[in-house]
Design a protein around this nucleic acid. Sequence first.
DNA 1: TGAGGGCATAAGCTGGGGTTATGGCCAGAG
DNA 2: CTCTGGCCATAACCCCAGCTTATGCCCTCA
Lengths: 316, 316
Amino acid sequence: MARANGEERSDAGPVVPLAHRVPDLGALELLLAVARLGSLGRAARERGISQPAASSRIRSMEQQLGVALVERSPRGSRLTDAGALVTDWARRVVEAAEAFDAGAQALRGRRDSRLRVAASMTIAEYLLPGWLIALRAQRPDTAVSLLAGNSAAVAERLLAGEADLGFVEGLDVPAGLDGAVIGHDRLVVVAAPAHPWARRRTELTVAELAATPLILREHGSGTRQVLDAALAGHGGLAAPLLELASTTAVKAAAVSGAGPSVLSELAVGEELAARRLVEVPVLGTRFGRDLRAVWPSGQRPAGPARHLLGLTRALP
Amino acid sequence: MARANGEERSDAGPVVPLAHRVPDLGALELLLAVARLGSLGRAARERGISQPAASSRIRSMEQQLGVALVERSPRGSRLTDAGALVTDWARRVVEAAEAFDAGAQALRGRRDSRLRVAASMTIAEYLLPGWLIALRAQRPDTAVSLLAGNSAAVAERLLAGEADLGFVEGLDVPAGLDGAVIGHDRLVVVAAPAHPWARRRTELTVAELAATPLILREHGSGTRQVLDAALAGHGGLAAPLLELASTTAVKAAAVSGAGPSVLSELAVGEELAARRLVEVPVLGTRFGRDLRAVWPSGQRPAGPARHLLGLTRALP
DNA sequence: TGAGGGCATAAGCTGGGGTTATGGCCAGAG
DNA sequence: CTCTGGCCATAACCCCAGCTTATGCCCTCA
């Protein structure tokens, strides 16, 4: 009974968990179906539930949000203006859920999958789900299995014949592999908007960066290696302010203002867009690194691997 | 009992709804808390549930995904490698849900809110939720109400004193209002990857575009007005292939290959990134348009409105 | 050698979401 | 002008996912 808690307070406050204020995925999917099909009943049929179930689901969603979403008529249902807006927001949630699903499905994929992919953490986190969705759209019967690890682990899997295609970020191609650049990434220095670095007028110098304790991932992460290498000439990296186990944790700490950090552009894209973090320009250094697809030397990817490779080429 | 259905089939297939394959928001939030706090019990406490509830929730999520997510020990719980990956995917779902919540909350906002915003559909759909999240992070007690409509409606609200700040996309500032450019948008010609236009070697000419029936929104949308104006010198727009009520519907039709369309870059960003749609370059024309914040002439925004305005300035 | 933090198991309750059955409403056909 | 069919709402009932409280085991650390 966590209901009669802070209810009389103002409407703000994540005291009430997000899950209680946002309709669940089933409801959002249903709403999308209603928008597309123009009728509660048809949407219900498509989703495989009964018409009254759909009706009540939509109704309770409207109650929860406090807004009328669909205009019912004896000839069907149309979205209201608010409904159209809500539907588009819902669409983004559903798309994120689809990416989650595509990734999770690959993660549990059996070893006998038709396409076995090994990828670095960063690529697996931020790019692969999108590729997998595109792949599924074009070749729905391709079962994909995913194994995530660092560059060395990816190379090992490929050479052992336990993976068909690999993806790594880094400065060079691991020995024994051929590769193709499929994109570019760079490390960015970030800080919370309230951090002094976010208000600097002048660019940061590399020496300053090297001298400042940062929030970093533990040793062994590709990000950290690149950083180590780049700062080697400037006295090396200062002792970290915090050493955390996951990129997520690092971002959370940086967002909460614990200190500055250095992270992949891919990892902080969302945070920068939402201004939870601010990029701190660094003088003269780019911290760039290529994203590569890799495979055992001489064995050009064929079949599903070749197809997935094709999907990745056109992306940023 | 929709369980014993297509279970023996391959793992592909959205026969089973997404909602049954993706943990619900509560579970994802819980997982994020576990990742951040390093213990099931602490996460449970933060989320306001009992420790056994958290334990069972995480366990059933692991079962559902078929992957171990956390490594339990008597000293706490750490994410596994797969868990870290899943957590980051989960984070994106939760962030989309937060945007949904921020938007929905504003949509139902009472008229007595401290900040009343009127915005064009495109801006309300794609940019406002992010701003609202940022605003809430910095000024948690600002209650925002949102009203979405076309440029004329936004102007009307502002002039009637029923809104404090407006956002419009278009070529000029409505009469009676002052404004500031806060970003830029452009219309892009898009087609499904399988569409002939997606494989063209040569750029499309404006005349070709004008002569081709397109999938468009109904009359009255800002997008369509810009397009009408731009093609007026080339024989005007051909009769539409399809006229649909919402941007969502237009995109869905284009993705499914019904034909080419012209949409705001903001609206198709996701689809382009996921290669569900492909941009078709057009020779010599940019179809650009400014995004503007607007307010009644002479009444510079102050208070919360000024603050929100500040948040928008740094974004793309 | 307690004491305490952390996780798991067990037993029982609750409510949201599902189902079937039915009724009202409106449009267009006969 | 009535009939028929598509669409939505209401009612009554059912079930299971997820919550709670009450324990117990395990490990670490003072």
